[in-house]
Amino acid sequence: MAAPRIVVLAGGVGGSRFVLGVRGALRARGIADTAAALTVVVNTGDDLWLSGVRLQPDVDSITYALAGVNDTERGWGREGDTERVNAEVQAWGSGWPWFTLGDLDLGTHLARTGWLRDGLTPAQVLERMAGRWPLGARLLPMTDAEVDTQVVVDGGTTMHFQEWWTRHRATLAPERFENPGMDAAVPAPGVVEAIAEADVVLVAPSNPVVSIGPILAVPGVRDALATTVAPVVGVSPIIGGRVVRGMADVCLAAIGVETSAAAVARHYGARSAGGVLDAWLLAEEDAAAAEEVAGAGIRPLVAPLWMTDAARSAALAEAALGAAGV
């Protein structure tokens, strides 16, 4: 049997764990060349310039996770990293004192920045980065354009998403999220083609607003999802009425969406009604919401969603693939 062609839209820690689960599910099926089967379209709305180097937090989190070198306790950065260079940079008054970069992580940013200065696109840089480790997946940025997420907080002050998220821990009430330049952006090479040729498209249990939202906002991505023959299956980032990690509830409230599995499903919408989903995986704790999801034109499926270890992450991914019939 040929390996299914899988596209995952992902960002953040939840996205990293889910992508690992998809790769694990493919390996459990006996598929050795998972890189030929699995394409991950990664959010780049979190990206920023800092101290003259280009940071891509979601790209790096997923890359490090697939390479097995990520810091699983913090959820970001490299395992066993040190912060000597970061301390020296901040001693010079550069960077952000509340935004820590590990030395190994800085090595990644320096390499990326050098390649960008040499004229490579972000997609070409990511392809070069992926050659260092056997990731078992093809990674694509959502776009080559710089569309960094800005947060307009109560009172009209605008700041980069990373400042709002890391420095202020999402305590400043957001009025809205913006991605300047998004209207002129286009999907990175390979993104639309991967969606068109997929056997299934999976929406990872990532932050719906600032991880999945920017991917869907890239002009052309929604059209690709609307026209692909592949079923689109989403996994709820809400379990038992609560976010699993981070401050996604604050983000959802800012766009008028309740923190519930059914509300997030409605936010994405049914493909049959101009949205993006055909099916939606709900946690066992939210099984009572299945009828509400079905009423929105989205096929509900109930499964264990906690990704507490590799086996559970693979089981969740297998359930998502099963929901698509692949």
Rank of each mutant, 00 (worst) to 15 (best):
F99W: 11
A254C: 13
A65E: 09
A35T: 11
R245P: 01
A65L: 05
A32Y: 00
V229K: 14
M307R: 00
D105F: 04
W96F: 15
V233P: 02
M247H: 13
L321E: 02
G131P: 12
G156C: 05
T143Q: 03
A254P: 14
L50T: 10
A273I: 09
R176E: 10
R78E: 12
D58E: 13
T34M: 07
A10H: 02
T72H: 01
G12D: 07
L126K: 13
W165K: 12
E258P: 13
A254T: 12
D58K: 01
I238F: 00
G15S: 08
R23C: 09
A67H: 01
A226Y: 07
S236G: 07
P57F: 01
P231K: 09
A320C: 10
A248Y: 06
R271L: 09
W76N: 06
L225N: 11
C251M: 13
T171E: 11
F18T: 00
Q150E: 15
L48T: 08
A198C: 07
R78Q: 10
L216S: 11
A296P: 05
G240Q: 00
G325Y: 01
L20E: 03
D286N: 02
G136Y: 04
R78I: 13
L38R: 05
D144Y: 03
V186P: 03
V276D: 08
A303R: 01
L110N: 02
S211I: 06
I195T: 09
A137H: 14
G241K: 08
L301C: 06
W76M: 06
S16C: 09
E79L: 13
W96A: 15
D33W: 01
R78M: 09
P208G: 10
R84D: 14
S94A: 15
V152A: 05
G322I: 05
V293E: 08
L282N: 02
M129K: 02
R132P: 01
P57Y: 10
G190W: 01
P304Q: 00
A198V: 05
I6C: 11
Q162R: 01
N207H: 10
T100A: 13
D223P: 13
